[in-house]
Structure formats: C-alpha cells, structure tokens
Amino acid sequence: MEYPTAIALDKDALRSNVVRVTIPAKAMFDLKKMQKITESVLDQLGCSNCHSGHDIRFDIERQFIVDEKLKIHSQMELMRR
C-alpha cells in the first residue's frame, strides 16, 4: 500500500526551501592561494605516473596548511596587542 500524497507533499514542501547552486566537479577554490600549481583532471583518476620516487603533492598541501595556520595565529596575536 502506498502513501504517496503525504510523503510527496512533505518532500515538495521541503524542496521549496532548498537553495540550488551549481559548483564544478573540479573546484578551483583551493588553488587560488597556492602558488604555481599545475592542475589537470586528466591524470586525476588514472595510475600515478611514477612509483619509485617522491610524490610531493602531500608535502605541498601540508606546507600550505602550516603556513596558513601560522598566518592566522600571528594575526590573532596582533589583535590581542
């Protein structure tokens, strides 16, 4: 037995409050502050192209976070003075 009406109405009511936005699958928000990063979707999903060396993508990300944390910390210090 179906209860389509009530459920559909609720869903419709809920949907009317939902804000619909469009965002790209390849969001570039994260790259605006990172210096000189070559970004490509081509090699994003396939095999990594070197497996006996040193992949620095994680190191780059960690350095970015460390720098930003330090910046925010120093800004807070300035505000306290």
Binding site: N17, R20, F29
Partner: peptide
Amino acid sequence: LLETLGRGELPIDLPTADYEAEITPP
C-alpha cells in the same frame, strides 16, 4: 564553505540552510 577552506581557514559558524549543489562536469 569551499572558499573558506580554499583560504586555508577552518569553517566556523557558517549560516545553516539546506542547499542542493549540482556538480557539473569539467
């Protein structure tokens, strides 16, 4: 949310609302 993280900042106290984001292919 994405722009906040893009700046390397923790998203705190962002306004709550229901959003539906359509993800478009590159």
